[in-house]
Write a protein that binds this DNA or RNA. Structure first.
Length: 824
RNA sequence: GCCGAGGUGGUGGAAUUGGCAUACACGUCGGUCUCAAAAACCGAUGGAGCUUGCUCCGUGCGGGUUCGACUCCCGCCCUCGGCACCA
């Protein structure tokens, strides 16, 4: 009987079956089986998905189905990160409401995911732009506000003039807007911030708890948090009342400090230069530096520039007068905006000192190097060494001196130990329409007043002119804007900024547990049972933004006592991009591969299998249409296996297995072992699939052999195993085949096959005999052969005798089960 | 500049972590079936050389350790990613 692989029919049939039977529906109260929470980063619903997006969901689904077969209760939810700028921009362009545009896309993507056979518990669907959800985003804001972790301040902020809104630090890439690449400018504006810096140390320390996160992601977060340990030192200024505070990590070099440098934004500049004769010239210089765009710093040819203030500071360690300069290489955003400069041991200070002929004094001698006192120094030495020219600290090692000098300074009130972070507070206000309203009211009498919890949600009005103006569109919605003060009842105005969408996505994984709860953000008992997420899957582009913010919010909720886990995601998997013709798939490049076409021609199982087979999932991979056909060929080949076993009564005579039976049985158990190991490791789907291919090849070889009895029960078992092992990757064809093989229910209700050690053993093994790194002979020997016997056998082989040419071997090494190495 | 990942056939990629380099797949070539094509199946396929079953060479480059190195150590080169006057 000829079997046709009719993918269209099969795939529709089983997608309907899963939906009818509620295969992915999970009761979060159920404690009967071990829980497994598999979370795939929820998408922003822009246009429809292409195969480049697909990898994420296909990997997630393979994990979910595999874990189901391993008898876990698997939670696999999906939702929509549905607020955000693109909706608004599209809406403006095409004159459609952002809400309408967003829901149109949601429906489109949802039907795509369904047609790919990706299994989700849709009853848990979460959409960040509906009041049911954003009520609780506002609730989190209020909780943060109550703990002084949400605050408003005027600050120089990043502003994108194209998106007409401010951006968080994390959203500025190389001085440009991460979304539209417009150069970001600095603006002084009143904005809302979350005080993530309070959590800097914990965010850093707890990276250690994340054993199953990719190292690179942890390193990125570490760099972003940017902790450095040092000393802040007060320098008194000649003829002035105030002191200049500098932070340094190299307090050991303080005797080599020959000048101070201040940022052009340094707050005390006016007071500092008020008596300077060159006041006007200095002012002009400051003005010039302030007007340099922040992106100028990133250019290769950025020139260090400076001007002398005419004022001197005193080095507190030796009382020496050192000039105070203003320079463009000092950042106001980091440390204090003032630095002590040690040109001999810092390359930047060195470059500056050279340019303006400032003195360079060496205070750290390189180990083993003789001091070249009078010779010109060619470059700054930044390494460790022994202190010289450093008063009674001379002779100390630099590491030791850091401690000794810091202690001395603390004792004498010159300075104190300090820790600085690169991480800044998270700027969350956006002057745009399509986002969560910030639940704050401004009252003339009471000032800033939070909306009361019982009054949540503050609804986002829908009838709005949402054109970008640089101000929030909500400013012009009278009904929204005018309200009563929750405290005194007098007339008040609402905050009109909305929240950054990263706030929405920083807690969605908690809401999946109780998505329809009207009275609580979630039920702590259930959340504590289901969380932390066992497996999180998503793109590496979220390594800093989303993953840092989520960790922060999680820790905050932990501090409130609402949850009992410190980190939200146990294991993180970041998949690589699928590229086509060497570039990321995008509509503008015209290299998008349409999943609809592929599914129509080959089926989603082929697409899924190819996506998983194309390479290690954590690496980028190049899409090749020929590879796709290979997967299609393989699935057809699998389906044809059914012909060999269907309708044939299996013989039950395991006692007398034929040689071929034994071979296939062994290969089957070996394959189970290897595929399981590949999946339990770091999701090596590509090798897992290749091993099933090997098993299939082996079965075909067996069946084609004339001696093989196709009624063999072993053959039947092997074919079943092929579909069980393939089920997480190509679920539809496996369900169909399972039914044909007599399965009564879904294949995903079956247990994952287990291998038995006893079947892996071989009676005879092949041993390679190696001389000078070359295989000279292959011997078929009993598996349990002794090293003495194998040596003898090897030496008596004619090929080996020829190769040795009469020389007697110096040494023979037998690696059991593998090879014999003869050293002549 | 600092940190991280990587470099293996014509291509995507394997290699149980020190043990037969190139599994599996794509592509190419040859064959079977066919009037023919497609599909399917079988076989060959790292490079060079000749005496055609053997010899050299071969995992970015150069050294080293070892009976044995894609794997470990030292020194370089290149590609990608992150951070970047962070004091």
């Amino acid at each position: 009987m000829e079997r046709q692989y009719q993918h269209k029919k099969i795939e529709k049939k089983w997608q309907a079956f899963w939906q009818d039977k509620g295969l992915f529906k999970v009761d979060t109260q159920d404690r009967a089986k071990p829980k497994y929470y598999c979370l795939v980063m929820f998408p922003y619903p822009s246009s429809e998905l292409h195969v480049g997006h697909g990898r994420n969901y296909v990997i997630g689904d393979a994990v979910v189905r595999y874990k189901m077969m391993r008898a876990s209760l698997v939670l696999s939810p999906m939702g929509w990160d549905a607020f955000g700028l693109p909706a608004e921009n599209q809406a403006i362009k095409h004159n459609i409401h952002p809400k309408e545009w967003t829901f149109k896309n949601i429906n489109r993507i949802k039907s795509q995911l369904n047609s790919w056979g990706i299994g989700y518990d849709w009853e848990r669907e979460v959409t960040t732009c509906i009041p049911e959800y954003y009520k609780w985003t506002q609730w989190i804001f209020l909780k943060l506000y109550a703990k002084n972790l949400a605050y408003k301040k005027e600050a120089a902020v990043n502003f994108c003039s194209s998106c007409k809104t401010v951006l968080a630090n994390e959203q500025v890439v190389s001085g440009r807007c991460e979304r539209c690449s417009t150069e970001v400018v600095q603006k002084d504006l009143e904005q809302w911030f979350f005080k993530i810096t309070d959590y800097a140390q914990r965010l850093l320390d707890d990276l250690e708890l994340l054993k199953d996160w990719p190292q690179r992601v942890k390193v990125m977060q570490e760099n972003w948090i940017g902790r450095s340990q040092g000393v802040s030192i007060d320098f008194s200024v000649e003829d002035k009342e105030f002191k200049i505070n500098c932070f340094t990590t190299r307090v050991d070099t303080i005797f080599g400090a020959t000048f101070l440098a201040l940022s052009a934004e340094y707050p005390l500049l006016d007071k500092l230069i008020e008596d300077s004769p060159d006041k006007e010239k200095i002012r002009q210089f400051i003005e010039k530096i302030r007007n340099q765009p922040s992106s100028a710093r990133l250019q290769e040819d950025f020139q260090k520039e400076g001007i002398f203030t005419g004022v001197y500071a005193i080095n507190p360690m030796n009382g020496i007068k050192i000039p105070i300069w203003i320079s463009n290489y000092v950042l106001m955003e980091y440390g204090t905006g003032a630095i002590m400069c040690v040109p001999a041991h810092d390359s930047r200070d060195f470059e500056f000192a050279r340019k303006y002929q400032l003195p360079i004094i060496e205070v750290i001698s390189k180990p083993q190097a003789i001091s070249h006192k009078l010779q010109a120094i060619k470059e700054a030495y930044e390494g460790e060494g022994v202190l010289a020219n450093s008063g009674h600290f001379s002779g100390l090692g630099s590491e030791e001196a850091k401690e000794t000098i810091a202690s001395y300074m603390e004792k004498n009130s010159i300075g104190k130990r300090e820790i600085n972070f690169r991480l800044k507070d998270w700027l969350i206000s956006r002057q745009r329409y399509w986002g969560v309203p910030i639940p704050i009211v401004y009252c003339d009498k009471c000032g800033i007043v939070p909306v009361e919890e019982k009054d949540l949600p503050v609804l986002l009005p829908e009838d709005v002119e949402f054109k970008p103006t640089g101000e929030s569109p909500l400013k012009y919605v009278e009904d929204f804007l005018n309200t009563e003060c929750p405290r005194c009842g007098s007339r008040a105005k609402r905050e009109t900024d909305t929240m950054d969408t990263f706030v929405d996505s920083s807690w969605y994984y908690l809401r999946y547990i109780c998505p329809r709860d009207r009275d609580n953000i979630f039920n702590p008992q259930d959340v504590n049972y289901w969380l932390p997420v066992d497996q999180y899957i998503g793109g590496v582009e979220h390594a800093i933004l989303h993953l840092m913010y989520s960790r922060f919010i999680n820790k905050f909720l932990y501090d409130l006592g609402l949850i009992n886990f410190k980190e939200p995601f146990c294991r993180l998997f970041t998949q690589g991009m699928i590229v086509k013709d060497g570039a990321k798939m995008s509509k503008s490049k015209g290299n998008v591969v349409s999943p609809e076409y592929i599914i129509d021609k080959y089926g989603t199982d082929t697409m899924r299998l190819y996506i998983l087979f194309m390479g290690p999932p954590e690496k980028d991979a190049e899409w090749q249409d020929e590879g796709l056909q290979g997967s299609f060929r393989f699935l057809k080949r699998c389906f044809r296996l059914l012909e060999f076993v269907e309708g044939k009564e299996p013989e039950e005579n395991k006692e007398k297995l034929s040689v071929l039976d034994k071979k296939i049985l062994r290969k089957m158990h070996l394959t189970i072992q290897e595929v399981t190991r590949d999946l339990e490791g770091n999701f090596q789907f590509n090798t897992a699939i290749s091993r099933v291919m090997e098993l299939v090849n082996e079965i075909y070889r067996g069946v084609q052999s004339t001696e093989y009895r196709v009624q063999s029960s072993i053959l039947r078992e092997a074919v079943k195993t092929v579909f069980l092992l393939l089920a997480p990757f190509a679920p539809h064809i496996c369900e169909e085949s399972w039914g044909i093989l007599g399965g009564k229910d879904s294949i995903f209700k079956e247990n994952w096959p287990e291998y038995k050690e006893e079947f892996l053993k071989e009676d005879e093994i092949e041993i390679a005999v190696i001389i000078r790194g070359k295989v000279k002979a292959r011997l078929l020997v009993p598996a349990e052969i002794s090293s003495k016997d194998i040596e003898q056998k090897a030496l008596s082989s004619q090929k080996i005798k020829d190769a040795l040419k009469g020389a007697s071997p110096k040494k023979i090494i037998y690696v059991p089960g593998k090879l014999v190495n003869i050293v002549p």
